[in-house]
Amino acid sequence: MSSFIYDALPMRVVFGSGSLARVAGEVERLGLKRALVLSTPARRELADRVAMLLGDRSAGVFDQARMHVPVTTADAAQAVGEELGADGWVATGGGSTIGLAKALALRGGLPVVAVPTTYAGSEMTPIWGLTQDGRKQTGRDRAVLPRAVVYDPDLTLTLPPSVSATSGLNAVAHAVEALYAPDVSPVIAAMAEQGVRDLAAALPVIVERPGDAAARAAGLQGAWLCGACLGATTMGLHHKLCHVLGGMLDLPHAETHAVVLPHVAAYNLPAAPSAAAALRRALATDDAAAALAGLGSRLGVPTGLRDLGVGEADLPRIADEVLTHPYSNPRPVTRPELEALLHAAWEGRT
């Protein structure tokens, strides 16, 4: 690669065990006086804890974040924020909550502090998404980037093994697509390779020994690297498929990425030799796509789209939507090949 452009994304990271205690300092550093804490209902206890840490700088808690950020959810959060006079957002949780904070930042420009509790890595990207009438619209805007990310591995210790596995494979998918993106650079390629290596080593340990603090920290580091790669490159077929599946059928986000990942890798990697070589090194294998499928199997994630509730009759309209507005991809996407890929992913064939 003789020439490239690398555009670094501005990001402040606070990393380490016990880092949650520093969230108030990050809010104060941004000059926020009334930050609204965001969470899903399941993460309400953590949100209340964060609000307590913020003290007088907390405007309260909104705990209705949902997958794929429905427009109605963003409307409701915005209304609560306006009523309480919020001047910023603290997103505590996984991709659903961080996605909501991004949508709110896109609308009003108020800053976000992210406190991730899963391995999805979305806190590192300027990519936002909103879902309305079964269609997920996505875009890229630096205004949605969190101003600070507080990574505390302790917050992941109670994460169920299944969520750890699927969210980690979601992050791996970010790095895999970054490796064959048209705007990949040597910097991003190195980050992607290391991120995949970190997560591939950490996730089996996390699933088998959930209390392993070192593996939890390594997993968060891998998620950080993989997310940053997606934030700096163009998305391809994998993310297009997952966005369509999620928006159209309201599928669980991380599980969808985990199912689709090895199938799109098998489709694209023959057309992306440098990406394939990087993944062979990261996964210590001669067949990266097979190794990704094997990793998912070892982690116990769903293997087929039908396991997530997709009907075989849904596949043609999924293909229609993917082909209507295709993403950049290293290998041309034709309808027969896309339908074959979808059927393999639906059945869970390796």
Score class of each variant (00 low, 15 high):
24 A>V: 07
81 G>E: 04
141 D>L: 01
238 H>G: 10
142 R>A: 14
122 S>T: 08
264 V>C: 03
77 A>H: 02
118 T>Y: 04
224 W>K: 13
222 G>R: 11
52 M>D: 15
135 R>V: 12
332 P>N: 09
287 D>F: 00
211 G>R: 06
10 P>N: 04
93 G>Q: 11
295 L>I: 03
62 F>N: 12
204 P>C: 09
223 A>P: 12
184 V>C: 10
72 T>H: 11
179 L>S: 04
258 A>V: 02
57 R>Y: 06
100 L>S: 08
329 N>K: 10
162 S>Y: 13
172 V>Q: 11
28 E>V: 09
261 L>K: 06
61 V>G: 14
11 M>K: 15
100 L>H: 08
100 L>Q: 08
345 A>K: 00
110 L>M: 05
268 N>K: 03
45 E>K: 14
182 P>Y: 01
169 L>S: 03
350 T>K: 06
105 A>V: 11
71 V>S: 14
95 G>E: 01
208 E>H: 12
249 L>I: 09
314 D>W: 04
185 S>C: 09
221 Q>K: 12
53 L>Y: 10
81 G>A: 14
48 D>I: 00
317 R>V: 11
42 A>Q: 13
237 L>D: 08
188 I>T: 15
29 R>L: 09
33 K>W: 05
311 G>F: 01
303 T>A: 15
328 S>I: 00
318 I>N: 01
313 A>N: 05
326 P>D: 06
306 R>D: 07
254 A>N: 04
241 L>N: 05
294 G>E: 08
143 A>E: 05
97 T>W: 05
193 E>F: 02
215 A>M: 09
290 A>T: 11
142 R>K: 12
33 K>S: 15
175 A>I: 13
44 R>A: 14
92 T>K: 01
50 V>Y: 05
90 V>F: 11
75 D>L: 13
63 D>C: 13
251 L>N: 07
137 Q>A: 15
338 L>W: 04
178 A>K: 12
164 S>H: 07
334 T>A: 09
15 F>S: 08
43 R>N: 15
89 W>K: 07
313 A>T: 10
64 Q>I: 03
86 A>R: 02
213 A>F: 03
175 A>R: 13
78 Q>Y: 11
208 E>M: 06
210 P>I: 05
102 K>I: 03
74 A>K: 10
215 A>H: 10
216 R>G: 07
116 P>L: 01
87 D>C: 06
295 L>P: 04
164 S>P: 03
117 T>H: 02
305 L>M: 05
204 P>R: 08
72 T>S: 15
340 A>P: 04
260 V>G: 01
32 L>D: 10
337 E>D: 11
287 D>Q: 00
178 A>Q: 13
204 P>M: 08
66 R>I: 07
186 P>Q: 12
142 R>F: 03
86 A>F: 02
204 P>K: 08
187 V>G: 10
91 A>L: 09
274 S>F: 12
33 K>Q: 15
231 G>N: 09
120 A>F: 00
321 E>L: 15
256 T>R: 08
239 H>T: 03
178 A>V: 12
26 E>S: 07
164 S>E: 04
347 E>N: 03
171 A>W: 11
60 G>H: 12
158 T>K: 14
214 A>S: 14
297 S>C: 08
234 T>Q: 14
90 V>C: 11
119 Y>T: 02
12 R>S: 11
276 A>N: 13
243 H>V: 00
203 L>P: 09
228 A>W: 14
344 A>V: 00
